[in-house]
Amino acid sequence: MPQLLIDDLRIEVVRKNIRSLRLTVYAPDGRVRVAAPLRTADAAIHAFVSARRAWIRKHQEQFAAREQPAELEYVSGETHFYQGQPYELRVHETAAGPLRVKLLEDGFLDLFAPAGSTREQREKALHSWYRARLKEQLPALAARWEPVVGKQAAEWGIKLMRTRWGTCSIRARRIWLNLELIKQPPHCLDYVVVHELVHLHERLHNARFWGLMDQFMPDWQVAKQALRSVHLKPCG
């Protein structure tokens, strides 16, 4: 990808068939990308970035200050989260058979795995369990929020994403949710669902977009702030 060095900032530049310049700072490393209309001169990009230098630095500092999550080994005693609540993982060795997961109300998350199973196998089993739980919740989420927002997605999907909590393909009306959302409090999942549905009204994050967010989910900023404090580092 083409890059510009503006002062001490390395900027990724992608030219697209769009009308205006867009700036994004990505977690976790604070890399900067500018999306620019096809015929935009480098000098115009330079001026655009320079005018927003303080904003860029602020977000890079926020990302750098986030606590780095511990590397998970999927062994007994680790803390794993589900819907914002911590659970202690207990790995139970079995003679054979598929790996399975069971959530207990007393604060334990039990993983049944054959003796000699690898970290990757245990991770895959837990991710499959997380995916199934989030998939179960999607119909109710759509039924709750689509009438409020006044837009309906044609398709919902789940995948691990390194930099985003959700994405929306406006033309296809397809919304993807980050699997990591199942670990966050339910109001965070609601926020991302509403956020992506609002993109079916307004593609850009402009005043109209945030005004619609205020209308449909007045407390959206609480959830957004909570998600900003999370270091996204999906595995697998």
Rank of each mutant, 00 (worst) to 15 (best):
H195W: 01
F209A: 06
K58F: 05
R33L: 13
A43E: 14
W145K: 14
A207F: 00
P28D: 03
E123C: 09
V14E: 14
A143N: 01
H231L: 11
H201T: 07
W220Y: 14
G97L: 09
A115H: 05
V148G: 02
Q121R: 13
M217S: 00
A43W: 09
I182S: 08
L134S: 11
V148P: 03
Q225H: 14
Y74A: 09
R208C: 04
V230Y: 12
L177N: 09
V32K: 06
T24K: 15
I158F: 00
P234D: 04
V49D: 00
E120Y: 03
S128V: 01
D42G: 12
I18L: 11
A96W: 04
K159R: 15
D219A: 10
N206Y: 02
K102W: 03
E71C: 11
Y87K: 12
L9P: 07
Q85N: 08
A54G: 04
R39E: 11
P86L: 08
R119C: 07
W210Q: 12
Q83I: 07
Q215T: 10
R52A: 03
R66Q: 15
D7S: 15
A140S: 10
A27E: 15
G77Q: 11
W176I: 05
K124Y: 03
G107W: 12
R122H: 06
Q60S: 07
V13N: 07
V34N: 10
W165K: 09
H199E: 02
R164A: 04
H187W: 08
T163Y: 02
H127C: 11
G84R: 08
S76Y: 10
E73F: 04
R90P: 01
A70E: 13
A115G: 04
R57K: 08
E61A: 15
R174P: 05
P186M: 06
R119W: 03
F81G: 00
A113T: 04
A96S: 15
N178A: 10
H205N: 07
P139E: 07
P234V: 04
R122P: 02
A132H: 02
A44V: 11
V149N: 12
A35T: 14
N17T: 13
L111N: 05
W176V: 02
A44H: 12
Y130T: 05
I6Q: 01
R173W: 03
L204W: 03
A115W: 00
H205A: 03
G157C: 00
A64H: 03
A35Y: 14
P98N: 11
Y74S: 06
I45F: 01
Q68W: 05
C235T: 15
K233S: 14
G77M: 09
R22D: 01
K58N: 14
V101T: 09
L141A: 00
R53H: 15
R15K: 14
S169C: 09
E120H: 07
Q62C: 03
E93Y: 13
A36G: 10
P186Q: 09
A226Q: 11
C235Y: 07
Y130S: 06
D106W: 07
A143S: 01
E73D: 04
R208D: 08
R173Q: 15
R52L: 02
R228L: 10
E146H: 06
W210G: 11
P139Y: 04
T79W: 04
Q184M: 15
L160G: 13
R131C: 01
Q184F: 03
Q152F: 07
F209W: 06
L177K: 11
H201K: 12
E123I: 00
S76E: 12
V148N: 08
P185V: 05
V193A: 01
H46M: 01
L4K: 13
V49T: 00
T163G: 09
R53W: 11
